[in-house]
Structures are given as structure tokens and as C-alpha cells.
Design a protein around this nucleic acid. Structure first.
Length: 931
RNA sequence: GGGCGUAUAGCUCAGCGGAAGAGCAUCGGCCUUACAAGCCGGGGGUCGCAGGUUCGAACCCUGCUGCGCCUACCA
């Protein structure tokens, strides 16, 4: 029999198995296989990114689902891939080029820059996929996709052209969110709102041809340069007379109208008069539409004031302009006052630059017609959300959708397939086509220029569930694996991604892209804070897997240019570094903590606990292997076929029964995406049942080398092997590596598959559920615990054998216990064990009450009477309380009348039990007094 | 402003209508030949606060408070 190392070394084991699985082709699903399909497409991580805890979580959950379904004989396919991540990647490469060559992307030019990005991708693109392999992910690698692959680019063009032809994509001049740093438009979702302390400036505008002044209040004084009206409420008596007149706009030589607008103006707020800047504010824009106001764009793409501003302000940034404008107003005596005011500002999700609403010509997706079916699909249950609470959030968002700005002024991405004709007039419809056109669709002109912009990355991501399977071609893959079974991702991209896949999937495929959406929580640090490199509270999954010393952590952080404070925090948080725990322990931790509706506060000590769990399983296996001499799995299987129950001992029957229940619990938990329940059930079985009890109970049988003990020994070997092997299969989806390693060592029947990965997932075998064995075991365990308890209280070491008498009034139970006296004596380290029916405890014994059984432990000469009285009194006290509680219920007429029968029966049973136990304890106490 | 989540043992979290649980931490005892990354035992909670529904509430309802997140154009 193989000798295993004393401690489990995950690092050594894990990578070896991944290679074996990969080379054996176990990860690959055949689209033509005649099995029920089960498919997941991975949420594609950024191609140039590296694995963080969020990825580790999503990867773990998806791999659990896929491995589990694969073991249930589904045609399980998990499609890997990466996303080109337009803005993020372009920014990274821009910074890199700037640092290494001192050039901007404009210095390089578009073609050259895009080449650099591809080079960057070639160099850094494989990292995250390699890291997914370290996690043990059973991804179908030959199906790997990248959003800028030819096939997927084709899909993007097809989708764009079709939507355009259907009138669902249009080009329009609108107010969009503009990031001056990224120099691109952003969708509403890419703007993050933050509450800040700002000011409300009250500015006096002189009314034309009058001495009156109209004071407006604004949080953005610099935009006054672009005002084209001042609005008051049409029914506001204070200002009514001014409507239709004009004010002189300070700092400019313009006069603008005073208008009445009930929509824009809240009489109670500020001064009751609002400056209107249609070029730079959404509400003002709409007001401008209503009143036919002029729109002035004040800023250039770099966020500086342009030629529409008075000369003295041109070229200033927004912040500079604000200072200057305020200073000038003050100098002119037009600044009435400044009030502190809280407001919310929009920032670019990527670079935190304040986003400006800017008037700009962009491409949009008309979302209304797409949202309808996406709502209906969820209402009708074609797609369901788990946890269910997300349904509401999804619906709310879907019902309040605005059109989606999809053009980005970037170079990295799918270029918009629209061409403009030099011969056509400005503003004429462009030629939108799948193939690069030679002629203008409108006039046949040949001088065509393609639109400079690229599409929002989420546009291509929205096609992911079908573009990856070959769409627009009608492939076998699509037929087999679409709709996918589950979309598993973080709730933070519910709108960005899930919602858009729903809309686009339904539109192009006429079927939902996935049947279930499982949204997992965010991984945060121990204190509930978001993990961030700036804070220095990041736990890197790879450090957890492979281990890292404090020096390594600090070094890595320093290399990344981490701030001092964060490095100090790293030292504080990981004084000992991070021990190597292996991917299994990390996966188990994430699964165990993935309770619905709660963020995952990841703490190192939890991971450590589950690393210990892996070690526990490992050592249980070591023990088993040391005791498998002469064991033959086929022979056991044959013997087990006939009259199994008679051949098995109580512990055998008990552990097999518990195993069945565990199998059911795990399966049910996984069906409900309750990964924490699955983890807990298997943890409890392996540690608290198999290791703590069964192995100890089986030792006598396993170590009995006599001829008469042979059958028992073979049976114990078989049961232990079965329990271990089955537990491994139950645990395999969560901890793939150690279960494979262990499973390989356990003797199995001939013809068993070569890898645990391709075995069947355990199912409940009702014939092995044994209520009687569980009940008898409960008494035996109670007895043993009672003896241990006394030992502990009297500090009697295990080396001292104790003599015990069990009083078991009930004959049938007595017989069953008697049959197990050897086992009880062994675990309780008893000298003699006597069973009687008689109610009187022997002299010189202390009595513990375990259900109907009195456990009498002989402790002559060692009894500490005072301590013992205290113990008994405490016990009686508890029972008194319980009795009073139960009596209260039973004495309550309403309870008796309305509570269900079984509850009443249960309460009566409790009362009887409490009274009976108290009687025995009181007797015991009296005897103590006589001692 | 609206919405959602959450509040349970020192810490991190299960439980979500019928006698309060786990892991870690803590305390006491064990080198018992699978495992000291271990074994055995103990202590520790008026389940955020206030009402209500119910025979019965940690669990359902209402209000309040704290924390977190999403969303929104209040200048």
C-alpha cells in the first residue's frame, strides 16, 4: 500500500492533476453528444488583467456547477474567453507607451498604436487564463474566445448592421457624458456618482433696460458663460412680470431671455430663478428643447473652454474657469452670496475625472423595443434570478431605460461599420454595411471614410452567449448549447452586462441567453471594505494558493508603486505573510462563504481553517490506506450484494446512513445554488462523523487480525473505502485536486473510470438510510460523551480505565446497546461495562442522564462531593427552566386548542423526559449525600 | 429623493414560525501509533430598538436607529 506523506502538500499535488485532466480531454464537451446539455459561458475577464478574488469566486462557483453537472452525466460545457476591455486596456497601453517611449498615442498614430495594443495583449494576454488553470477550472479550452477574434468581430458587425437597418441604432447630436481625460463619450452606466460638499453661488443678472437684478443660484458658476436663458416659475408672483424680458449675461456681451418654465423651476429652491445652460446640463437641454433656446457648447474635448467663451477664459480648464468667473463676478459686485451645498458629481468609472455633459454627435441603441421582451422573459420565468431579490432590481432598471450611447472615441475596439461619403452633404445618412463598401449607398460615390469611433465594449459583450458559439452562423454549437444553462456573475454588472445580454440575446436569437442568472456577492476584506490596492487590503488568490512571505508581499506592492500607507497596512495585516493553502482550500472557503445576499468578508483564518480540513481528509485517507491490507473492492461489492445489513456493524450502518443523508443535502444545496450549505454538509460529514466517530469506532475491527474477525474487518474496510470514496465524489466539485489525489489512492472496483472527474456524482440510496442505526448510535455517543465529560471534570486521563454501569429500562434498546458494549467500552476507555434494567445505580458511582439511559460511572474515592452537587444542581436547574417553559405551554388553553397535534405531543414528551431526568438526578444527589 | 440589503456568541457568518448553531478565537485536559494543520471537554448570545400579528416570533408585519450598496436632473 502506498505510504502517503504525513501532511498534505497542495502545491505539489494540484498542478500535476490539472495537466492530467487537460491532456485526457475531460474538459472538452462534444456538441454532437447525445446527452442533455449544460452550458455556461464565462464572464470574460479583461484580457490583460490578472486574477483577483472576484475572479476566484466566480471561477469557483462556475467550476463547481460544471463539475457537478458533468458528474451527473450532462454534456457540460464551460466556455472560456477574454474581453478586450476598450477603455481599460487602451489606458494601460497608453501609459506604458508614454513611460517607455515618451510618446502619446497621437504621436504614434492610430495604426501604430493599435499594433502596440496587440503586442501588449500577446505579451500579457495569457496571464489570466493561466491563472484560471491554477484555480482548477475545467474550462473547454479549445473553445476559448476573445471579443476581438474574427468570428466575434463578424458577429458585432452583423448585430450593428441589423439593428441599424431595423432603426434600433441611430446617430444623433445629444448631451452625452464626456470624460476629458479619456477623451471619449461614456454610457450613463460608466459614470459613477459621488456626493461631495460643494457650494451654491448666488449670482445677480441685471435685467435689461431696468435697474432690477434677477439673482440665480447655481452649483456650476463657470457654465454661466454658456447660459442662453434664465427660467422662473410661471406662477411665481415675484418674477411674473419679468417673463418675456431679457437679462444682460454678466462677463459677456449677450442678452438672454427670461422664460417661465414649470418643469425646470422649483420655486422653493435657491432664489427661485435658474440659469439655463442647454449645452451642459440635461435638464437645461430639455428646457432648451421646450423653448427653442440656443445651445452653446463651452468646452473642447480636452475639457478646456473653447472659442464660444469670452477671450479671457479661453483655454482654461473647468476648475480654473470656475475660480476666474467667480472672481470676476465678485469684482463686478454681482456675486450675492455663497452657500455650502451638497451635490452629487459624476466621475469617470475608469479614471475618476469629473464627467461633463457635452453636446456631441454619437451613436445610440434605442432600448425601448429591446427592453420589452427582456422584461417579459423574466416575468414569464423563462429566465429566473437567484437570489430572487435581483428580479426587482432588474425590472426597475429595465422599465426606466434610456437609450444607450455605444460610440467611444477610442482606438481599441470594434470600429463602427459606418462610412461617410465625401460627395454627400454634411449630415446625410452614412453607409452602414457588413463588408467594407466601395460605393456610397446613397449616391454611389467612392470617396468613403469609415467612422473613427469604436463600439462600447459592452456591446460586444452583450452578444457573448451566442457570438462565442458561432453566431451569426447557425452552428451545431449554438443548437446544442444555446440558451446557456446558467449565467454566473457578480451583481455589480447586472445592468452593464446581464441586462444587455438579455436584450440582445432575445433580439437576435429569439430565445433567452440563459435560463438562470446566479448573481454572487462581492468579495471584500475582513472589515467589509472593498479590496483595493490603494488601501493595501488586497488578498491575492495566487498568494493564498502558493503562499507568500511578508517580504514578497511588500516587494510586489512596491513594484506596483503602492502608496506607503498601503504598504504599512500590508505589514500590519499579514505580519507572517500568507501561508500556501492551495486552490482547494481557497475554493472551499469561497464556497462556504457564498451565502446568498451577503458580501463575502474574506479572512485569512477562514482559509486556514479549510486548509486544515483538506489536511484532515488527507490524514483520514492515510489511516485508511494503512488499514486496507488484503482489501479487495470487488470482493466487498460481491459480499455486499447479499444480506448486507447482517454483515455490517452498527457504526458501519450508521456511517453509510449518514453518508446518504449527506449526499442528499449536498445535491439539494447545489440545486439551489447554496454553495455554503453544500460545503457545510460535506465538512460536517468528513470531520464530525467520518473522522471523529466512524474511524475511531472502526479501529477495533480494522486492527483485529484474527481469523474470526476477518469478515468484520473486510466489512469495515469496505465501508471505510466506500465512505471515503463517496465523500470524495461529493466534495470533488468544490475541491477538485485533493479529492482526485485521495480518490486515486482508495482501492476501487475494477472498471472504475481513470479519474474522479468522470465518475458519477453520488445520489441518495434509500436502502442505506438506517433510522434504527442512527438512533442506537445516538445513545452510544451520548454515553461516551457523558463518560468523557466526567473524565474532564475530574481530570482523569484516558489512561485510567473506568467502570461503568448503564441502566437501560427499555429491553429492546438494552439489547441493541449490549450488542455495542465493546465499541462503547473502547471509545469511553472503560474497564468494565455492565448493563442492567434495574433503576438503582450501584454504590460509589456518579450518574449522568442520557435520554432514557442512566450512565453510572464508578469513581470511588475520587468523588468531589461539592463539585458533583454543583454539577447536578446546574443540570437540574436547566431542566427546571425547561419544565416551567413546557408547563406554561401545556397549561395554555389556546396552545392546546390551536397548536398542531404533533407539537403538543412533542411538548408532552419533553415534559415527561425533563421530569424523569430530574427525578433520576435528584436520586443521584441524595445518594451523594449518603456517600 | 427613491429602492434594495443587512443588524444573531469576542470575530466572520449559518439558521428565517415550533426548546439558539458552525468555524475561528478563548479557557481547561491530553504527545491516545491517521492527523498538534490534531484529540477530548468547557465557558460565552434578553438573536439592533419599539410596537404588532400568532397558541407560539431570531424568523412574519409596522415604525425607528446604525451600517452597506444601487439608483436619481432638484439648479
Amino acid at each position: 500500500m502506498t505510504e502517503l506523506p504525513k501532511a498534505y502538500d497542495p502545491v505539489q499535488v494540484e498542478q500535476r492533476w490539472y495537466r492530467v485532466w487537460l491532456e485526457s480531454g475531460y474538459f472538452h464537451a462534444d456538441e454532437a453528444a447525445p446527452k442533455a446539455p449544460y452550458s455556461i459561458v464565462i464572464p470574460p475577464p479583461n484580457v490583460t488583467g490578472s486574477l483577483h478574488m472576484g475572479h476566484a469566486l466566480t471561477a469557483t462557483i462556475q467550476d463547481i456547477l460544471i463539475r457537478w453537472r458533468r458528474m451527473q452525466a450532462y454534456n457540460a460545457m464551460w466556455l472560456p474567453g477574454t474581453d478586450h476591455a476598450g477603455i481599460a486596456t487602451q489606458m494601460v497601453v497608453e501609459r506604458h507607451v508614454q513611460r517607455s517611449e515618451g510618446k502619446s498615442r497621437h504621436d504614434l498614430g492610430r495604426d501604430e498604436f493599435v499594433k502596440r495594443v496587440w503586442a501588449w495583449k500577446a505579451k500579457n494576454g495569457g496571464r489570466i487564463t493561466e491563472q484560471l488553470k491554477v484555480m482548477g477550472c475545467s474550462l473547454d479550452w479549445p473553445r476559448e474566445r476573445f471579443t476581438l477574434d474574427d468570428g466575434l468581430s463578424l458577429a458585432v458587425r452583423e448585430a450593428f448592421v441589423r439593428l441599424y437597418e431595423e432603426g434600433l441604432i441611430y446617430r444623433a447630436r445629444r448631451l452625452i457624458n464626456w470624460c476629458a481625460r479619456c477623451r471619449t463619450a461614456l454610457s450613463d452606466l460608466e459614470v459613477e456618482h459621488a456626493d461631495v460638499d460643494g457650494s451654491l453661488w448666488h449670482i445677480a443678472y441685471p435685467v435689461a433696460d431696468s435697474d432690477e437684478r434677477l439673482t440665480v443660484a447655481t452649483t456650476r458658476p463657470e457654465t454661466m458663460l454658456g447660459d442662453t436663458a434664465v427660467a422662473v416659475h410661471p406662477e411665481d408672483e415675484r418674477f411674473r412680470h419679468l417673463i418675456g424680458r431679457r437679462v444682460r449675461l454678466p462677463l459677456t456681451d449677450r442678452e438672454i431671455p427670461i422664460i417661465g418654465d414649470a418643469v425646470l423651476v422649483d420655486r422653493e429652491f435657491g432664489t427661485g430663478a435658474v440659469k439655463v445652460t442647454p449645452g451642459h446640463d440635461e435638464n437645461d437641454f430639455e428646457t432648451g428643447q421646450r423653448h427653442g433656446l440656443e445651445m452653446i457648447a463651452l468646452f473642447d474635448p480636452a475639457g478646456r473652454l473653447n472659442e464660444n467663451a469670452p477671450v479671457e477664459f479661453r483655454g482654461l480648464t473647468v476648475a480654473e474657469a470656475r475660480l476666474q468667473v467667480v472672481a470676476r463676478l465678485e469684482a463686478e459686485g454681482l456675486l450675492v452670496k455663497i452657500e455650502p451645498h451638497k451635490l452629487s458629481i459624476g466621475q469617470c468609472q475608469r479614471c475618476e475625472t469629473v464627467v461633463e455633459p457635452m453636446l456631441s454627435l454619437q451613436w445610440f441603441v434605442k432600448t425601448g423595443p429591446l427592453a420589452g421582451p427582456a422584461i417579459e422573459a423574466v416575468e414569464s420565468g423563462k429566465t429566473r434570478f437567484v437570489p430572487e431579490m435581483w428580479t426587482k432590481t432588474y425590472m426597475h432598471w429595465m422599465r426606466n431605460l434610456k437609450d444607450w450611447c455605444i460610440s467611444r472615441q477610442l482606438w481599441w475596439g470594434h470600429r463602427i461599420p459606418a462610412w461617410y461619403c465625401a460627395a454627400c452633404p454634411e449630415g446625410a445618412a452614412p453607409t452602414v454595411a457588413r463588408e467594407t463598401p466601395q460605393n456610397c449607398a446613397r449616391c454611389g460615390g467612392t470617396e468613403l471614410t469609415q467612422d473613427e469611433d469604436v463600439l462600447d465594449t459592452w456591446f460586444s459583450s452583450g452578444l457573448w452567449p451566442f457570438s462565442t458559439l458561432g453566431w451569426p452562423k447557425e452552428t451545431r454549437e449554438l443548437k446544442t448549447f444555446y440558451p446557456t444553462s446558467v449565467m454566473e456573475t457578480g451583481y455589480d454588472i447586472l445592468f452593464f452586462w446581464v441586462a444587455r445580454m438579455m436584450m440582445l440575446g432575445l433580439h437576435f436569437m429569439k430565445k433567452v441567453p440563459f435560463r438562470t442568472v446566479f448573481l454572487h456577492a462581492m468579495v471584500v476584506d475582513e472589515r467589509g471594505d472593498k479590496m483595493s490596492k490603494v488601501r493595501g487590503n488586497v488578498i491575492d488568490p495566487l498568494d493564498v494558493i502558493h503562499g507568500a512571505t511578508l517580504d514578497q508581499l511588500v516587494q510586489a506592492a512596491t513594484d506596483r508603486g503602492t502608496p506607503e500607507a498601503a504598504i504599512a497596512n500590508i505589514r500590519k495585516q499579514f505580519p507572517e505573510g500568507i501561508p500556501a493553502s492551495g486552490a482547494d482550500a481557497l475554493r472551499f472557503t469561497l464556497a462556504a462563504m457564498a451565502a446568498h445576499g451577503r458580501n463575502i468578508r474574506l479572512a485569512l483564518n477562514r482559509i486556514e481553517g479549510y486548509r486544515h480540513f483538506a489536511n484532515k481528509l488527507w490524514n483520514a485517507t492515510r489511516f485508511a490506506l494503512m488499514n486496507f491490507e488484503g482489501y479487495d473492492a470487488d470482493r466487498f461489492a460481491d459480499e455486499a450484494r447479499a444480506d448486507l445489513r447482517a454483515k455490517l456493524s452498527l457504526p458501519d450502518r450508521w456511517i453509510l446512513s449518514r453518508l446518504q443523508r449527506t449526499a442528499r443535502e449536498v445535491d439539494e444545496a447545489l440545486e439551489g445554488f447554496k454553495f455554503n450549505d453544500a460545503a457545510q454538509a460535506i465538512y460536517r460529514f468528513v470531520w464530525s462523523e467520518l473522522c471523529d466517530w466512524y474511524i475511531e469506532l472502526a479501529k477495533p475491527a480494522l486492527q483485529d487480525r484474527s481469523t474470526e474477525g476477518e469478515l468484520r474487518r473486510r466489512m469495515a474496510q469496505g465501508v471505510l473505502a466506500t465512505a471515503l470514496e463517496t465523500a470524495c465524489r461529493l466534495l470533488h466539485p468544490i475541491m477538485p485536486f485533493i479529492t482526485e489525489e485521495v480518490w486515486q489512492h482508495v482501492p476501487k472496483r475494477a472498471g472504475t473510470p481513470a479519474s474522479i472527474m468522470v465518475t458519477m456524482f453520488p445520489t441518495l440510496d434509500p436502502t442505506l438510510v438506517d433510522e434504527e442505526a442512527e438512533a442506537t448510535m445516538a445513545v452510544a455517543q451520548g454515553t461516551i460523551v457523558a463518560v468523557r465529560n466526567l473524565r474532564s471534570e475530574y481530570t482523569i486521563g484516558g489512561a485510567v480505565p473506568l467502570d461503568v454501569t448503564l441502566i437501560v429500562p427499555q429491553a429492546e434498546l438494552r439489547a441493541r446497546i449490549a450488542a455495542e458494549s465493546g465499541m462503547i467500552a473502547a471509545l469511553g476507555r472503560l474497564g468494565t461495562l455492565t448493563l442492567t434494567a434495574d433503576g438503582e445505580p450501584p454504590a460509589g458511582t456518579l450518574v449522568s442522564v442520557v435520554g432514557e439511559v442512566s450512565v453510572c460511572v464508578k469513581l470511588a474515592g475520587q468523588i468531589d462531593r461539592a463539585a458533583e452537587e454543583k454539577r447536578i444542581d446546574k443540570e437540574i436547574g436547566k431542566l427546571e427552566k425547561s419544565r416551567a417553559q413546557v408547563l406554561g405551554k401545556l397549561g395554555n388553553e389556546a396552545f392546546m386548542a390551536r397548536a398542531p397535534e404533533e407539537v403538543v405531543v412533542e411538548e408532552k414528551r419533553r415534559l415527561a423526559e425533563a421530569e424523569e431526568r430530574m427525578a433520576r438526578l435528584r436520586a443521584s444527589r441524595e445518594r451523594l449525600a449518603r456517600l
